[in-house]
Amino acid sequence: MAGLTGWLVVDTLSLLSRVGVAPVLLGFHFQPQHGRFGLLPFVWGSVVVGVLALVVSVPLAVAWAVVATKRISGRASSAMTTAMTALVAIPSVVWGWWGLATVVPAVRGVLGGPGFGLVAAGVTVAIMVVPTVAALAAESLLAVPASLEDASRALGADEDTTLVAVTLTAARPGLTRAVLMGEARVLAETMAVAMVVGGQPVARLQIAWPGATLTTGLLTHLTALPPASAGGRAVATMALLLLVGTGWLARHLRRLGRAS
């Protein structure tokens, strides 16, 4: 593991020294056959998909968790929470299958263009991680002591105020952790993204058009470029960026885990 990471670092440094830091980190195109090794397209794609997934999935997941744990009770409530944990296990290729059938045509219909693109990828993985985020959020909502909520109600606050001012506030560290866990899964997701993203390694602002992420870039190029060339080193750099990104998230999650 350490050896492999070291090899990635060596490859990255040699890419940066041969091609230059700016063309690699700020290049808008990845076209090895034309001598362009910009990795910005992949980083940009991962960021866009990550942000889209966050924006779409968090409201849905938190609503699901709140309704399941605070608004209904008994059988329905436990069914809703059980469903979350079971749905977490739906394989990502299955979500990709659905993304191709539903999300791509929907994006094509609403935003024009080919449908395949960063928006389709973001929406597909957002919906994929909703159960993950919801399950963790429900856990942290259940951990909020009922006495706090009772006190709020006793003071005359209505349900909505209690929810925002007391429950969600008290559960904030756990909710943050849930969201970051979802984000970690989004960043690491490969197949569901690869099936709908369009695979074009270019960084541009029109996010409805085809793009690529670090994971899909790695997947599609890992055998197609010879290892000891600039292209192969760029592939190693993608892997390193992914390791750094997920490692950073894992570190934050550990911190949050200790805090809560």
Binding site: P32, L225, P226
Partner: peptide, 13 residues
């Protein structure tokens, strides 16, 4: 492959 730079066309092997 036209214009394949450094190694991509085998030089880096």
């Amino acid at each position: 492959l036209d214009g394949w730079p450094d190694g991509l066309a085998g030089g880096g092997h």
